[in-house]
Design a binder for these strands. Structure first.
Length: 460
RNA sequence: GCCAGGAUGGCCGAAUGGUAAGGCGCACGCUUGGAGAGCGUGUUCCCUCACGGGAUUCUGGGUUCAAAUCCCAGUUCUGGCGCCA
């Protein structure tokens, strides 16, 4: 959330930021009006309270002096003030609530370097890595969902059987590959100075609000024990939509010491997303699912260094793709494509060669976003109450938070199954992963299970 | 789940209805030949150009002219009992 003071003092910057994002639903003028009105009431209430405090302490003195008559008069005076104060403060509280509610819906102000634009087509490609040369691919690259089912390492149908659409089973070497990727990433990020946490998976509404998932994006998350459309309280729980939520909130209302920063945490967790209204042919397979694993990188830094840290963070996430030797590109997001809380974001998109998309690279295939590295500046810290003390004697300030996926598992697996695919339908295990798969070099698939396979001629 | 006892500043800790002691830490100033000790000031949030003011004893309600203090509800910690993968 932006600070009231900032909005009050830089309304034009806030308006410009909204325009760059294409946000039209936020009325800054109304917020400024409410703020002015609130300050007026607050100041009047403070004055009346001051008067009453003085009378009140006089009552104490008079009582002790034994002057009951004067005390009685003062008590009456105090009582008269009480009603007036109550009325004014009630109105002030109401305005303040409204102000806070409104401010929660104002997105972060994009940094100057953020290019204008409406959607992902206006993002600026920063660099492209790993295309020169690319690995030799089969004539026709089989999409991961077909290949995975053929190899019996992915099973979408049985995911539907137990949990419904958008859920899937990993089987045999598929499951093994998943775990290998997780361990590989954790080791890599540990080398990069990340200390690991394993957070709780259900998170409170308060935490969801802290990082900016609520109040606007309730439909994207799964709520435990209630429907998303119903009103929610602070003690409602939601299934972790990204480890950003528990990890960024873990030091809520705490003050970190200056010499503890930058603090870098990594967290491997499952993530749950409803993906409401995101159905279509391009979402076949594991590209858009309701549950997936991800290793998340969260940074807590001093304000002066957050911009520099963002580029470092991009490199740390990209190192995963570098070591897996997967081609990818890095893009700077335009204003219209920024998420709510972010002031600046770089996307990492891996190359999945099977399905040709119009906006894919000239080699064919498509880009799959595997990580978004964002600088939230103090936007989340202010909502969460996340401060640091630069020096022991100095007062605490809001710190800056950043995060990036390091990286999302299913899409990397898609890239591996398609990019490391061989003409004979097997998949080569990237060298970096082999130590995590007992030295296995190739995924050759498994026998299907169940009599349906016999009928289909895939089993005797 | 039940019973009991707790929650006060960065930390420790006092105050049982009259408006939050004291100590430690840290910073600055004074003092000193220097260091230490000593003394002073500061070390939450909000409003105000400022002077100043308001709020704040885990959270939310209530009683009262007045609540850290009394009452109700919740959160959480500790101990005991019960249950449990």
């Amino acid at each position: 959330m932006l600070s009231r003071q900032f909005v009050r003092e830089h309304p034009d910057e806030v308006r410009a930021g909204l325009a760059l994002r294409g946000t039209e639903t936020v009325d800054i003028d109304e917020i400024l009006e409410t703020d002015a009105e609130w300050r007026e009431l607050k100041s009047r209430g403070d004055d009346l309270r001051h008067e009453r405090n003085e009378i009140s302490s006089r009552i104490g003195e008079l009582k002790q002096a034994g002057d009951d008559e004067a005390a009685e008069a003062a008590i009456e005076q105090s009582q008269a003030l009480k009603a007036e104060i109550e009325e004014i403060e009630e109105r002030a509280d109401e305005l303040e609530d409204r102000l806070d509610q409104s401010l929660l819906t104002v997105p972060n102000v994009p940094q100057e370097a953020v290019p204008p634009g409406e959607d992902e087509l206006d993002n600026e490609e920063v660099r492209r890595v790993g295309f020169d040369p690319v690995r030799e691919l089969p004539e026709e690259v089989v999409p991961h969902y077909d290949l995975g089912e053929r190899l019996e390492i992915l099973d979408f149908e049985r995911g539907v059987t137990v949990s419904g659409g958008g859920f899937y089973f990993l089987k045999g070497d598929g499951a093994r590959l998943e775990h290998a990727l997780v361990q590989f990433m954790r080791d890599l990020h540990r080398e990069q100075g990340y200390s690991e946490v394993f957070p709780p998976i259900p998170v409170t509404s308060e935490s969801m609000t802290g990082t900016g998932q609520l109040p606007k994006f309730a439909d994207d998350a799964y709520r435990v024990g209630g429907h998303n459309d119903e009103p929610y309280e602070d003690d409602d729980l939601w299934l972790c939509p990204t480890a950003e939520v528990p990890v960024t909130n873990m030091y809520a209302d705490d003050t970190l010491l200056g010499d503890e920063l930058p603090l870098k945490h990594q967290a491997y967790t499952p993530n749950f997303r409803r993906e409401a209204g995101e159905h279509g042919t391009e979402t076949r397979g594991m590209v858009r699912v309701h549950q997936f694993n991800k290793v998340e990188l969260v940074n807590f830094v001093e304000p002066e260094s957050s911009d520099e840290r963002l580029t470092g963070l991009v490199d740390e996430a990209a190192a995963v793709l570098d070591r897996l030797e997967l081609p990818y590109r890095v893009s700077l997001l335009c204003g219209g494509d920024l998420t709510f809380a972010s002031a600046k974001t770089y996307d990492l998109e891996v190359w999945a060669p099977a399905n040709d998309m119009p906006d894919g690279p000239e080699q064919g295939g498509r880009w799959l976003e595997v990580s978004s590295a964002s600088n939230f500046e103090a936007f989340q810290a202010r909502r969460i109450g996340l401060r640091y003390r630069p020096e022991r004697h100095e007062s605490a300030e809001y710190l800056h938070t950043l995060n990036a996926s390091g990286v999302a598992l299913p899409r990397v697996m898609v890239a591996i199954l398609e990019y490391y695919q061989n003409p004979d339908g097997t998949v080569t295990v990237p060298e970096a992963l082999r130590p995590y798969m007992g030295g296995q070099e190739r995924i050759e698939g498994h026998e299907p299970i169940g009599e349906a396979a016999v009928g289909a001629g895939r089993k005797e």
